[in-house]
Amino acid sequence: MKTILSLQQLTKKFGALTAVDHVSFTIEKGHVYGILGPNGSGKSTTLGMVLNVVNKTSGNFYWFDKSYSTHRALKKVGAIIERPNFYPYMTAYQNLALVCKIKEVTEENIDKKLELVGLLERKNDKFSTYSLGMKQRLAIASALLNDPEILILDEPTNGLDPQGIHQIREIIKKIASTGTTILLASHLLDEVEKVCSHVIILRKGKMLYAGSVDKLNASFGYVELKAENHEDLLSIVQNHSWFTAEKVDPENHIITANLTENIAADALNKMFVEKGIFLSHLIKRKESLEEQFLQLTNQ
């Protein structure tokens, strides 16, 4: 697996405050990564360090195989941090042409990328006339100009209206489907859950978890069960080795229990039928990222 970015014990201190505290992780080609954390947890500072705009206090990071200097590596990276930053007096096309010069790529990609984000017909309008959603989409087009090895997005939907959020998500999904490696920082969990295969969780600058979303919580999910003869159902659940930590909702008598093995819903159903119980309600779920995240960050 080709390593794109590797962080080793990266640390940033702002005076007495440690914004990023010994963070280490590795980004590999072809995955979609999410950096999760509440506001102020050090997501943007971490990205700022690897993107050459914030100076590290200690630790190390390297891009690709260590031979690249940071600014040379960044020419093969596409990144947007927080807000879209462009020259307000230039048109979209002129702004992107400037980025092409900096990244040393030809300008032939500009129209194609503008079309991808739906701004082609506005390409000759000044940046200052754009709405926030359009600015953000232009930023994505700009980040894609060099067909980057990795796309880094920091809070790409911040401050957008629901339609804008939807548009950005669709674009991200489209890009992810082409196999581009993506690193997405966000405090919006559903955003990360929808597209990411791996997560890095930060809290107060410390890294709590780095790995695949599936392994984040080693549990096998949980089930919700309900049947006519509630007492029998409850006794089976309490005594069967598949279930643990069962709870009963006193109002609607729905039993919730964690699974101890990876059992398919149909196998569950079959087992209950064999014991003479016909379920009127069966839901098998994994904990949502939000629940897992809250568990982790509340520790």
């Binding site: 993107l51 200097s69 940071t70 600014h71 990144a79 941090i81 930053n85 462009f86």
Partner: peptide, 17 residues
């Protein structure tokens, strides 16, 4: 003020350049 210095660096211009 336009924060384009930051963007220039992210786009791959070095501080020296």
């Amino acid at each position: 003020s336009n924060r384009t210095l930051k963007q220039n660096l992210i786009d791959g211009l070095s501080k020296k350049e």
